[in-house]
Structures are given as structure tokens and as C-alpha cells.
Amino acid sequence: MPVTRKSLWSSLFGKMDVRAYTMVGALVLIWVLFGFLNPTFLTSRNLSNLFTQMSVTSILAIGMVLVIVAGHIDLSVGSIVGLTGGIAAILSNWLELPAIVVILGTLAAGAVLGLIQGWLVAYKMIPAFIVTLGGMMVFRGVLMGVTESKTIPVSDSVLALLGNAYFAQGFGIIIGLLAVGMLLWTAYNKRRSRQKYGFEIAPLGVDVMKVSALALIVVSFVAVMNNYKGIPFPIIFVIVLAIIFYILSTKTTFGRHIYAIGGNIEAARLSGINIKKKTMLIFVLSGLLASIASIVLTSRLASATITAGNMAEMDAIAACVIGGTSLMGGAGTVIGALIGALVMTSLDNGMSLMGLESFWQYVVKGSILVIAVWLDISNRSKGVK
């Protein structure tokens, strides 16, 4: 079957939102710019810190993608990070419970908070904006009350490792080899499957280019991380969760139902999809991921504070939108959200290194968010025409 220019483009770039690829180019430009203005930016030490810093936003964005794709919003994740972080510190410091109990208790608390909000949205038909806006204030207030507005230190050595440890260089090399091997196997398996069922197959050179480019990124990442202390532990959280939720959103019935609900809720209802149950579940997952982010953040800071997670929901939403997730629902990817999170963190990190006052970070990130939404609306308007 002949390969047209359109099919070649589709083979080269896949189904991922074109804007996500555009953001990859923008990310490269941001790194080049900050590297030129401050050579410290591109050092292994700073890039390691940058990836560690993006872990919290990335974890929240992974959960936020499903919420936004389903046509909702979750403004409470930042406060859930703060409250569950406070719960972790209380369980560890005040009650002196083992690390495993602290972790399980924190995860359970996040899931329960998400369950309550999801139930109100799905079964009581209260708009998600209102429910989560209220949750944002309630959870922050509860945090201030239970901690008496005090900073609670966390000294458990196991918990400290979760946000501050680095994997040995040998582990990074093994991870890199496994990732490259998986890329090769996935590309081979995809070609064989398409050939078996008679679908169009991209030229071998195109697949080689794609795999080579991705392999180069993996190898470069491992090399840069190993040049400092090794791969930061929080990044492993991000990678594992990204893989799980990528599979969940693209390879499962649950994921297809979420996209169907966000794309056309009436059609989804007529198709027999249990919309209420699926809606409640996405908020449970969002709360669970927020509690994971809180463990990472609390470990990194070695304490829980009443300001922990403040404005984190805005960064997560911005990361999703910048990465191609539509606020109108029905479109968005986990990979795109991670790219958006890296863009947001790179801007924060770069402007901090340049010594710019903090208000510039809000101005720049807010402007980028508005532009990203404007592009989404413009693209959808062209599609309607």
C-alpha cells in the first residue's frame, strides 16, 4: 500500500496532540535560552534538581488529565497535598507509627477525600468546580486546625529516602537499557501486528527514526542524571505512575469510557456507560495521586507545613492544558501533561537562577496558560467550521 505524505506525517508523529510536539520544541528553546543566560541551568546538578522539583506537579497532572478529559476540574488537589502531608507527619512524628503504616494511611486519606468529592459530583450532581473549590478551602482549614498551624518535622529515615534518595549509577544504566529494549520491542510488535491485520505500515526508516530519537532521549537522561548522583527517587514515582496511567487511559475500557464521557456525555449515556461510577472513580484516583505527591513533598521538605501544596492545583492544570489537554473535555494525554509539567518547572527553575523576582514567575506562567487555552479554543473552532 503506498504511503502518502499525510500517512507519513501520521506515522512519524502518531496520535499525540500536535501541540504537545510544539511544546517539546518550546521546551528545547526554553532550555537553550536559560542555558545561554545562565550556564548553571544546563549542569547535571541543576537538571537533576529540576526533575526532582517537577515530580510533585507531574504526579498531580497525571491525575488531573483524567479529570479534565472527563469534562470536570479539580481545584482541591493542592489542599489535599497539604492535608495528607500533615496526616503523614502526624502519624510519623506524633504517633510514631512505622513508615509503611504512615504511607498506607496517607494514601487511604487521599483516596477517601477524592471519594467524597467524587460522590458529590457524580451522585448529587453538584458541579465539580464548586465541590472542589469548597474542598480546597475546607481541606486547607482542616490542615491548619489539626496541625495548630505549626510545622511538623518528619525524621523517619525511610520516609526521608522517598523524596531525597538517588539510585546508584548502575541502576540508572539498567533502567536505560530496559527502556530502550522496550522501545524496540514495542515498535517491532506494532509493525508485526499491523502487518498481520493488513493495516498500513510506516516505512522502516520512519520507525527507526522514532525509536532512535526516543532512545537518544533516554540515554541522555540517564547520562546526565548519573553525572551528578544518579536518578532521583521521585522521578521513578513519576515514570511508574505515567506508565500505569498511560496504559489505563489508552489500553483499557475504563480509559475509553472517560474519553467518551468528555467527548459527548449524552452519547456515552446512550452507549450504556455508567457515567456516575466512572466520574466518582476519576476523583478517587485524583485524590490518591495527590496523596502520593504529598508523601514526596513532605519527604523532600522533611516536614509538613500549612502552605504545602499551595497553588499546586494551578500548576497541575496549567501543565495539562499546556500539554494539549482540552478544558472542554474529551482530549488530552498523560505524556502531554508531563511535557507541560516540565515546561512549567523549567520556567520556575530558570527564572529563579536568573534572580528574577517571584512575581515574574506568576506573570509568565499565567500568560502561557491563557495562550494555551486560546490555542485550544481556536483549534476547536476551526474544527467546527
Rank of each mutant, 00 (worst) to 15 (best):
M125F: 12
F129W: 14
I130T: 12
I130K: 04
T132Q: 09
L133H: 03
G134S: 02
G135K: 02
M136A: 07
M137Q: 15
V138P: 11
F139K: 03
R140L: 00
L143G: 05
M144C: 06
M144Q: 15
G145D: 15
V146R: 09
V146E: 03
T147F: 04
E148V: 08
K150T: 14
T151K: 04
I152W: 00
S155A: 09
S157T: 15
L159T: 06
L159I: 12
A160N: 13
L161M: 15
L161N: 08
G163H: 05
N164C: 02
Y166P: 00
A168D: 09
A168Q: 04
Q169S: 09
F171T: 10
G172K: 08
G172C: 11
I174Y: 03
I174P: 10
V180R: 03
V180Q: 07
G181T: 09
M182P: 01
L183N: 08
L184P: 03
W185P: 01
T186H: 07
Y188C: 08
N189Q: 15
K190M: 15
R191E: 12
R194A: 06
K196Y: 10
K196R: 10
G198K: 13
G198A: 04
F199R: 13
E200Y: 02
E200R: 06
E200V: 13
P203R: 01
V206T: 15
D207R: 08
D207F: 01
K210Q: 10
V211Y: 02
A213G: 13
L214H: 13
A215T: 04
I217R: 09
V219R: 01
V219C: 11
S220K: 02
V222C: 02
V222F: 01
A223F: 06
